[in-house]
Design a protein around this nucleic acid. Structure first.
Length: 429
RNA sequence: GUGGGUGUCGCCUAGCGGUCAAAGGCGCCAGGUUGUGGCCCUGGAGAACGAGGGUUCAAAUCCCUUCACCCACCCCA
């Protein structure tokens, strides 16, 4: 085998993967358009500061997972680890605050994280994401959730009970604003401090870094201190609580099923209030298919004015993984026609005819000249073509072609070359 | 980043110290009489057994290192 391979954690998308991928991407863009979201494509690299300022230097994403490099001009660039910060940068750079608010945007493209790969976790991953910027209301959160839910629904992953393995479930939480959250975090520290010694090493580390994470620890899931921990939902301020109540009321009104899960947290400080995740049933390791949240604090970190925003990102690979687990593959592409050139004159006439057929919109795979008729038809069958169009020296001289069906009985007709396209387009035999 | 598992032709797999200068199935290419597919038959190409080092008279088979993938944790999509 060749000694060169794709970089670790990065994968080739082969032709056989294309139908499913295209379907997912097309569906995502169609659903986004349905909600009047517009595409925004940002560069795959950004000034590293875009992510360092937004996510924070100590966040895992920046500290451990970001591809960072100097460019020749001496600047520090980063392969984008996520989409939201770049979208916000573009919002500010292009003065989108002067467009009608909120500004509704979506993006689709590869992200990069230097992380240890495992199933469903890659160093290059594709994300589709949506951002609704400039609307602080619960309605914006719910619109974005509804969009995400609609996407999964149209792909066959939701609602509950669809497909062999069941659908994705929506779990939501409110983590309050930065101020209420800081108060709650202190409360949590006081709660866990007496139990520190009995918690796992990971949780002890989180105690300093981010006590919220202790709540969804796998190791300490049944630790009494975790089970008895105060819920952030009991410590929201009046406005936070009203916002969250509105979110739930709207979801109820739309008939979108969800579970409130106070253990859903976010590592980054700019998040505020509503956060959510979509998970497949029997959630295991890298299971979250898509997650979102409100990020009212983000624009200011990027040097802009206070601007509320809410959005989600969903991993294309994880969607594809779930579709495959449920047997929701897409049919591979097959050509309409394979040409079968026989002899030198036949080869010329076959090439001309192929050109005519393509201009009529037919997908034509050119047969390899020099093969026997037998081999050529075997080849046509192997690629699952609908028709073989045989052009030998006899046909070339007569200005005809032999059109043979490959799907059913193998009926064939000799037709004038200029009638082949129409006959195949009619496709009634 | 931590712990564990796996690694033989494009794919799946046999072999587990000597008879392996590696076998089979799928796929690919070519034939099965002169211009006809899908089944079948025949033949062919294709791997020095992930890579490097070691043990041994002898290694795909044992040991070490390394790389990659997988699983769990961490983190996240």
């Amino acid at each position: 085998m060749a000694d060169l391979r794709a970089p670790r954690g990065m994968n080739d998308l082969l032709p056989e993967d294309a139908p499913l991928w295209r379907h997912v991407r097309d569906t995502a863009e169609r659903v986004a358009a349905l909600f009047d979201y517009r595409p925004l494509a940002t560069p795959i690299v950004e000034d590293a500061a875009v992510f360092e300022r937004s996510a924070g230097q100590e966040s895992d994403i920046v500290a451990k997972e970001m591809y960072r490099f100097e460019d020749r001009g001496g600047g520090t660039l980063a392969l984008r680890p996520e989409g939201t910060a770049a979208v916000c940068r573009a919002y500010l750079e292009h003065g989108m605050a002067s467009r009608p608010q909120p500004v509704r945007l979506y993006y689709l493209g590869p992200m990069f994280r230097y992380d240890r790969p495992q199933a469903g976790r890659y160093r290059q991953l594709w994300q589709f994401g949506v951002e609704c910027i400039g609307d602080p209301s619960p309605a914006a959160d719910v619109e974005v959730i509804e969009l995400q839910q609609t996407l999964y629904e149209q792909l066959g992953l939701a609602p509950l009970g669809l497909g062999r393995l069941g659908g994705l479930t929506l779990r939501i939480n409110s983590i309050g604003t930065a101020e209420t959250r800081h108060r709650y975090v202190e409360l949590l520290r006081e709660h866990f401090r007496p139990h520190l010694a009995t918690l796992s090493a990971d949780s002890q580390r989180r105690f300093e870094a981010n006590p919220l994470r202790i709540l969804d620890s796998k190791e300490d899931a049944r630790h009494t201190a975790v089970l008895d921990a105060p819920s952030i939902l009991d410590h929201l301020d009046a406005e936070d609580a009203a916002h969250f109540a509105q979110v739930r009321a709207l979801l109820d009104a739309l008939g979108i099923a969800y579970a409130v899960d106070p253990r859903i947290v976010r590592g980054l400080d700019y998040y505020a209030r509503t956060v959510w995740e979509f998970e497949p049933p029997g959630a295991g390791g890298q299971s979250t298919v898509g997650a979102g949240g409100r990020y009212d604090g983000l624009m200011e970190l990027l040097g802009g004015p206070h601007t509320p925003g809410t959005g989600f990102a969903t991993g294309i690979e994880r969607i594809v993984l779930n579709l495959r687990e449920r047997g929701l593959e897409r049919a591979p592409a097959a050509p309409d026609v394979v040409t079968v050139p026989l002899g030198e004159a036949g080869a010329l006439a076959a090439a001309r005819l192929a050109r005519t057929l393509r201009s009529a919109g037919l997908v034509v795979r050119a047969g390899t000249p020099g093969r026997s008729l037998r081999a050529a038809l075997r080849g046509a069958d192997a690629v699952d073509a609908r028709y073989a169009v045989i052009v030998g020296n006899e046909e070339a001289a007569a200005g005809t072609a032999v059109v043979k069906t490959l799907r059913a009985g193998g009926e064939q007709r000799t037709l004038p070359a200029d009638e082949v396209a129409a006959a195949i387009r009619r496709g009634d035999w």
